[in-house]
Design a protein around this nucleic acid. Structure first.
Lengths: 249, 249
DNA sequence: CTTTATTTTGCAATTATTTGCAACAAATGT
DNA sequence: ACATTTGTTGCAAATAATTGCAAAATAAAG
């Protein structure tokens, strides 16, 4: 019997019962438990299941909570967040994008800052709960379960009602000619609405996102007032943006 | 039995009853209480529940003070929630009020129920995150920090767009002549909008709320289709409502 | 078709985890 | 303050994982 055959059977059993035991599989497939253990390890490495003591269970299906996701690679994002904070002044109306960059800013926001925050992101609204002087306006709409933001025409309509001072925009890809682009159609639409509802747009972009492009168009590069990156502002590769009149930070 | 299986069962029991006891789980799973205690500790570390003396309670992602309120006097509310669940069928559009009663229903909602839920409550939306077949539409508006619901004209406008099958309405006070009333002006307005956007209105009322009144008017009693209480439906004091054509449960 | 190289498999010794128990500490209720 | 219940800690037995190694199976090469 081929190893791949065993793999298939293991995965099938797992789908059937939501669990498999080393002993059971060993008997079923006529191989030693050691072999099963090695198989499971290999499948686990491929992310197809989760290896646990005595067997395996399906790879955690439930989307992890947004708070977990947040602390992954926050080195660069923290730098960006710190820079972004310098732009926020008392009594401003600020649009917060739903991405993790904006989330980190929300988390680092001084407790005594007096703002009106408009957002479509649950995590951001939650984070601002304890900020006594921050008024939160939440954009309604269809709730996207995995990223916990609202999208759709309701969300867009909501943003259109405002004229904010600043929009903090998480950036997926940015390119001098192709402009700002993102991987999701509906999120791009929401971002566009946010940009339209704000006087200034501050883009939050880790350096590796510069010069890349995704499928869905958000806005031309020159609609951005400021681009905040994790690098010093005087870097050479930023010159093309500076020349467009965008302030690099 | 795998440790993960126990985890699953513990979490399932917790979802069913909103509480688990060391003794009960020990008997159910045929392991010592020590093991259960260790399991609960591990699950608590993962943030999947809250370990308490003698057992565990759910750890909802919502804000803390909200959660605390929830498990204080939940005996009655659990009875109400269980009854309310019998009204929910696949493919319905359901409005969830922002109160704790509705929250408990959301928490006890079967994972395989297929619903469209429209709500202005963060905690409820969060609870429904893992319900694969529940689509959540969130009403935007000004975010009320302490109760984590949105209110205001945006919220009201949002609800007005729909024609839902059922509205689950948490009740503060209800009186045969004065109708349904509440202690907050703006929340009353939102409730009124929700009632107007639904074919059927199911009121969730602990018995002590019957016959009382608060400052702000929500709707006349006869707009309610069903009143769910923690008492058996045939109680004498319910007769006045039954006579109004309201179904008491 | 044989021989060699590579991978896979099973086994045994070692190491790590899990589990239940018991003694003790802390909390809760009366 | 006392009795009772629950939590904690350390420990030993049971169970599972890891490692190194040799036999078997498979693939590759001549």
């Amino acid at each position: 019997m081929l190893k791949e055959e065993r793999f298939q059977i293991i995965l099938k059993q797992l789908g059937l019962d939501q669990k498999v035991y080393l002993g059971g599989l060993s008997a079923l497939l006529n191989v030693s438990e050691d072999t099963i253990r090695r198989d499971i390890k290999e499948l686990a490495d491929q992310g197809l299941l989760k290896s646990v003591r005595g067997g395996a269970v399906p790879h955690s299906p439930g989307p992890h909570h947004f708070r977990d996701r947040m602390f992954y690679d926050n080195e660069q994002k923290q730098i960006i967040a710190r820079k972004a904070l310098t732009f926020l002044k008392n009594d401003q109306v600020v649009l917060f994008d739903g991405g993790t960059s904006a989330m980190l800013i929300a988390q680092m926001l001084p407790k005594d800052l007096r703002l009106t925050v408009i957002t479509n992101s649950f995590p951001i609204a939650s984070l601002l709960e304890e900020h006594e002087y921050v008024e939160v306006l939440f954009a309604g709409g269809r709730l996207l379960k995995n990223s916990f933001v609202t999208i759709g025409s309701d969300t867009i309509q909501f943003f259109k009602k405002f004229r904010a001072d600043i929009c903090l925009l998480g950036i997926c890809s940015i390119h001098t000619e192709l402009g700002v682009t993102g991987p999701h159609y509906e999120e791009s639409e929401v971002k566009r609405a946010m940009i339209g509802a704000s006087k200034e747009v501050i883009a939050l972009a880790s350096t590796e996102k510069l010069g890349t492009a995704e499928a869905y168009y958000v806005c031309p590069t020159d609609q951005l007032s400021v681009i905040i990156t994790d690098q010093p502002a005087d870097s050479d590769e930023f010159k093309i943006y500076s020349d467009l009149g965008i302030r690099m930070v």
